[in-house]
Amino acid sequence: MAKTEFQVWRGDSSGGELQSYQVDVGPGYVVLDAIHQIQAEQANDLAVRWNCKAGKCGSCSAEVNGSPRLMCMTRVDDLPKDKPITVEPMRTFPSVKDLVTDVSWNYEVKKTIQRFMPSKPDAADGTWRMDQYDVERPQEFRKCIECFLCQDVCHVLRDHHMHDRFAGPRMFVYVANLEMNPIDTGNRVAQLRDELGVGYCNITKCCTKVCPEHITITDNAIIPLKERVVDQSYDPIAKLLGAGKE
């Protein structure tokens, strides 16, 4: 069987480089299969995160031929055959080792976001009645598998390193899910503006393009959130009344 060359980044926070491996690519191979083969046969200590191997857990994020992808959902035969395939860790996050990066910042930011605050149940049985139509909007955001590929690609984080002022697309998707939950009573507008920095997003839509769950991050989550910020921050009457959500 013909071998395919993979160039995998090996290293840690002190630096590293691409190393070349030859892989027997079997039928239907995804990039993660190739990495596993290298790990099993050539480099037992090659560090990589994965769990489901079916695009469901968001663990195996990496940059394949330079673009942010889930390794388990990237078919090798969909990649160009005339040059080696490069596999590198997400560059926006600090390196731990090889393909593993330190994504703990995302978990820290999420904790600071105002939590879900349900209204009083509206049905006699102590539950809520919600229309399928109304839950579908936030359900799109709840598909998020926290792969952080959108965070990886967003230039505000990747190039400008504004981690202290800007929460990134994943967190806006999370806030949108809360804000659009039919029974939530919270209001995260001030937080969006002052702490999460939604204003820094200049709608390049790169995040939407890489989302493996096909969440329309920019149009469906970020833009409506920006609109809320504008409406509530600059509408004097709304501000006076401390208005909540529509």
């Binding site: 995160r49 769990n51 489901c52 079916a54 469901k56 857990c57 968001g58 663990s59 994504v103 978990y107 598998i145 926290e146």
Partner: peptide
């Protein structure tokens, strides 16, 4: 063993 939210239940 994994990151939070990645356990098997997610599947």
């Amino acid at each position: 063993k994994s990151l939070l939210g990645k356990a098997h239940t997610v599947m």
